[in-house]
Amino acid sequence: MQSSEVELDAPPIFEIGEKVRSRKLIRNDGTFPGKDIGETLAKKGDVGYVVTIGTFLQTSYIYAVHFMTTGYIVGCRGKELESAEVSE
C-alpha cells in the first residue's frame, strides 16, 4: 500500500466473527500490555476469530483477532491475515 492510499475508502477485508489465520509471525510492538516489546503474540499459521474492527490513523483497518492457541486478542493489519473459512 502506498502512503497516499487510504484503506478505509473500501469496506473491511474481514468480518466480525470470521475465522482467520496469521500470515506471519506477529510480535509485540509495544501496544500489547503485559508483554515485552518483541515478544511473540501469534505465530505464522495461528488461527483466531475477528472480534472487533477498528481504524488506525484514519487510513487503515485494525482487526482485533482472538487467537485460540494463546488466548490473546491482538490487533492485526489486513496484510498480516488471511481467511481460514472453509468454502462449501
Rank of each mutant, 00 (worst) to 15 (best):
A10S: 12
G34S: 05
G45L: 05
E39Q: 09
E5P: 00
F14M: 03
S3C: 09
L25R: 15
T59F: 11
D29Y: 00
K79Y: 14
V65E: 06
G48Q: 00
A10P: 12
G54F: 10
T31Q: 08
V74C: 06
V47Y: 00
S83A: 01
L57Y: 09
V6C: 15
D46Q: 07
S4D: 06
A64N: 14
S4V: 14
P12G: 08
E88K: 11
R27L: 13
L81D: 02
I26M: 04
T31W: 08
M1D: 04
M68W: 09
F32K: 13
S4P: 13
F32S: 06
F67V: 02
E7K: 02
V20E: 03
L8A: 07
D29A: 04
R27Q: 10
H66F: 08
G34F: 06
E39S: 04
K24Y: 10
Q58W: 11
E15R: 12
G78K: 00
E5K: 12
P12N: 08
E85C: 01
V20R: 02
L81F: 00
R21I: 04
G34Q: 05
V74G: 07
G75W: 00
I13P: 01
E85F: 04
R77G: 08
T69Y: 10
E85M: 01
Y61L: 07
G17N: 07
D9Q: 10
M1I: 15
V74N: 04
I37T: 08
T59I: 10
I73C: 10
I16V: 15
I37F: 00
I62N: 03
C76K: 00
K79E: 12
E15V: 15
G30L: 00
V65R: 01
K19L: 09
I73D: 06
E88S: 14
I37L: 02
A84R: 05
F32H: 03
G54M: 05
G78A: 00
Y49C: 11
V51A: 14
D46F: 04
K19I: 07
T40I: 12
G17T: 02
E15D: 13
S83M: 01
R77L: 12
D36E: 09
T40P: 09
T31R: 07
G54S: 13
E88G: 13
G48M: 01
F14W: 01
Q58A: 11
S22D: 00
Y49H: 14
Y63K: 04
G54A: 11
D9Y: 11
G75Y: 01
Y49F: 12
T55I: 15
V6F: 13
R27D: 05
G71H: 05
R23E: 05
T55H: 13
V6I: 15
I73F: 05
I53S: 11
I13R: 13
E5H: 10
P12H: 13
G30S: 02
Q58R: 15
M1W: 05
V20K: 03
I37S: 00
R27H: 02
E88W: 07
F32N: 02
E39A: 05
I16C: 02
V6L: 09
F56D: 08
M1E: 07
V50L: 06
S3N: 06
M68D: 10
L41T: 03
H66K: 12
S87L: 07
G75S: 10
T70I: 14
F14H: 11
L41C: 01
R77K: 06
F14C: 06
Q2T: 15
K79F: 12
K43H: 10
E82K: 03
P12K: 02
